[in-house]
């Protein structure tokens, strides 16, 4: 299938029970699709729901309405209503996500954090670590940091660990939430190169990039998320 991701009429709102049940509509009627080898960038002013869409695509935000269809293991999965174990299975092999911040696990070294997704797929520890080392080297993370848990790393260093972890597996679909936000120009260029490689391999990418230079370098298409504003939709 040349279109591994199809989003159809997705709507999301938050009901804040601690604030008298006030309902905050976030997005409505979100519909788009992403082809293999394509990088779609979610654009629009901040607060418009770009991150929320990405989180729904990954399954860590619930979906009120609509479908998120992904091709996984030869079948079509609707992530919007999939069982938790199906979501986990899709994440293990098909769907990757590079978040803005690294969730640090106590005591686990940077190298092992990066290697873990490969390991979870059954790749031997040594091989997974070698591949992790290649990626960290490519992202210019000083070698003396590899064996340390990233809790004390700088924002930019943590972000590079996060990127390496997200890129280590050849997912069919990869979600990127501001992966270059805290990187210097040199490492931004490395990430742009890595995204280009993923596209060449046929990965479907959806990303949020505030940096216009990076965005222009990677985007095949920019979707204006304000088109999905619930107010606009209601009107």
């Amino acid at each position: 299938m040349a279109t591994p991701l199809v989003v159809s009429e997705v709507a999301k709102s938050f009901t804040m029970h601690l604030r008298d049940g006030v309902r905050l509509p976030v997005v409505a009627n979100v519909s788009f699709s992403v082809k293999s080898g394509e990088c779609v960038v979610l654009g629009g002013p901040s607060g418009v729901g770009k991150s929320s869409i990405l989180k729904m695509l990954y399954g860590n935000y619930g979906v009120d309405e609509g479908q998120i269809l992904m091709e996984h293991d030869g079948r079509l999965v609707n992530l919007a209503d999939a069982e938790p174990r199906t979501v986990l299975e899709v994440r293990r092999t098909t769907l990757g996500y590079v978040s803005q911040f690294l969730r640090v696990v106590p005591r686990v070294s940077a190298l092992d954090i990066v290697a873990e997704p490969l390991h979870a797929r059954g790749v031997a520890s040594e091989e997974a670590r070698e591949r992790a080392a290649e990626l960290l080297a490519k992202l210019n993370l000083p070698k003396e940091l590899w064996a340390l848990p990233p809790a004390t790393f700088s924002g930019g260093e943590q972000q590079r660990v996060n990127i390496a972890r997200g890129f280590i597996i050849d997912h069919r679909i990869l979600l990127l939430d501001e992966p270059t936000a805290s990187l210097d120009a040199k490492n931004r260029a490395v990430v742009v190169g890595m995204i280009a490689e993923k596209k060449a391999q046929g990965t479907a990418l959806v990303g949020i990039f505030h940096d216009a230079e990076v965005r222009d370098a990677v985007a095949d298409r920019i979707i204006d998320v304000s088109e999905f504003s619930p107010r606009k939709h209601a009107a």
Binding site: H17, L18, G59, N60, Y61, V87
Partner: peptide, 21 residues
């Protein structure tokens, strides 16, 4: 009930929202 990160990042029930907050 649900996926752990879904329940924690997008809690729906009043009580869960209270716990998470």
């Amino acid at each position: 009930q649900g996926l752990t990160d879904r329940v924690l990042d997008d809690p729906r029930e009043p009580y869960t929202q209270l716990l998470v907050s």
